[in-house]
């Protein structure tokens, strides 16, 4: 062959890479600047909540505390005033937990069975109801609030914890049902057929075949619901009484109460406390959280 004609010098081996190429500077530069915008509020909240009021009045909102104090956190938890009482957010936290647990259990249980029935046991009209359910997710809550109040009053559940549980179950149903339906529909159909040949019925297949295979989607649904229910404000205001107000409502009452001197550090501590539960869930669950909102959103 004529490879004697080829020059032996010139480029050879891997092309040298520059770590600080122009593209890289633009990409990372933009990302870092934007990150600052996203991180700023968290930084400011944490810093403010660790300062005393005198330091807040004099100092810079972005500066770290000169003297760290946890007193605002303690006051936010057990001493801040909501305009009705002065026992802080602890009461709201308890209420939110009491609202959250049954709502979570009920909504996930019902939606998973719904999704399973829709995916595997279609009956005449099931798709119609499902369509209504999905369209219902787009109806502004304000349209349905007052009639819901009447329904709950008739059921004797208005202003009661179980009324709010029911409301969360009802309004969480579209997205959760969609989530479960898509998941179950994505499971191999032959598995379902095999179970039917093996003589398992509706509940048998649900509990013995589907449930053990769908742990991930249950986790996703729970993350979605915990965040959603914990962060709810509207239903909490409308469907409960002050004694059982959830944490978000109490937080708003504390921070936006017009009485007394504004204690910004306590306010920020209270805000952080309220955001803590969903934040912890977010940081712990990471990918599953992302998967949940992406699945719920993209297919919605």
């Amino acid at each position: 062959m004529a490879d004697t004609a080829l020059p032996t010098h010139g480029p050879r081996g891997p092309k040298p890479k520059r770590a600080l190429s122009r593209t890289n500077i633009i990409v990372y530069g933009t990302l870092i600047v934007v990150s600052l915008y996203y991180l700023l509020p968290l930084w400011v909240m944490v810093m403010t909540s660790l300062k005393g009021m005198p330091e807040i009045r004099l100092g810079n909102i972005f500066a770290p505390p000169v003297e760290i104090t946890f007193e605002p956190w303690a006051r936010a938890w057990s001493g801040a005033c909501t305009g009705i009482n002065c026992d802080g957010l602890s009461r709201g936290f308890g209420n939110s937990v009491q609202i959250l647990l049954p709502s979570l259990a009920l909504s996930v249980a019902i939606a998973s069975v719904n999704g399973y029935a829709l995916a595997n046991w279609k009956f005449k009209g099931s798709e119609v109801f499902f369509t209504i359910l999905i369209l219902g997710a787009f109806i502004p809550y304000q349209v349905m609030l007052y009639p819901m109040v009447i329904i709950l009053r008739e059921l004797g559940l208005y202003g009661n914890l179980w009324g709010l549980v029911l409301v969360h179950t009802v309004f969480g149903m579209p997205i959760l049902t969609l989530l479960f339906r898509n998941y179950f529909a994505g499971m191999p159909e032959e598995l379902f057929k095999a179970a039917r040949v093996d003589g398992a019925g509706f509940w048998g297949i649900y509990f013995r075949i589907m449930l053990p295979m769908s742990l991930p989607i249950f986790v996703v649904a729970m993350i979605l619901q915990v965040t959603g229910i914990w962060n709810d404000f509207l239903f909490g205001v409308i469907f409960t009484k002050p004694e059982i107000y959830p944490m978000t409502v109490q937080l708003n009452n504390i921070v936006n109460s017009v009485q007394g001197v504004k204690e910004y550090n306590v306010n920020m501590a209270a805000t952080l406390l309220t955001g803590l539960v969903p934040l912890v869930i977010y940081f712990v669950s990471g990918k599953l959280f992302v998967r949940g909102i992406a699945a719920g959103a993209v297919k919605g």
């Binding site: 934007v34 990150s35 996203y38 991180l39 700023l40 509020p41 968290l42 400011v44 909240m45 403010t48 909102i61 965040t227 914990w230 962060n231 709810d232 404000f233 978000t248 937080l251 708003n252 921070v255 910004y264 306010n267 920020m268 805000t271 309220t274 955001g275 969903p278 934040l279 869930i281 977010y282 940081f283 990471g286 959280f289 992302v290 909102i293």
Partner: peptide
């Protein structure tokens, strides 16, 4: 990704109060 998404975990109440302060 974590940084860009974490605010979505927070409620509108928390968001509103944080920015009210800033």
């Amino acid at each position: 990704r974590t940084v860009f998404l974490y605010p979505f975990a927070l409620s509108f109440i928390v968001t509103g109060l944080a920015w009210q302060w800033i």
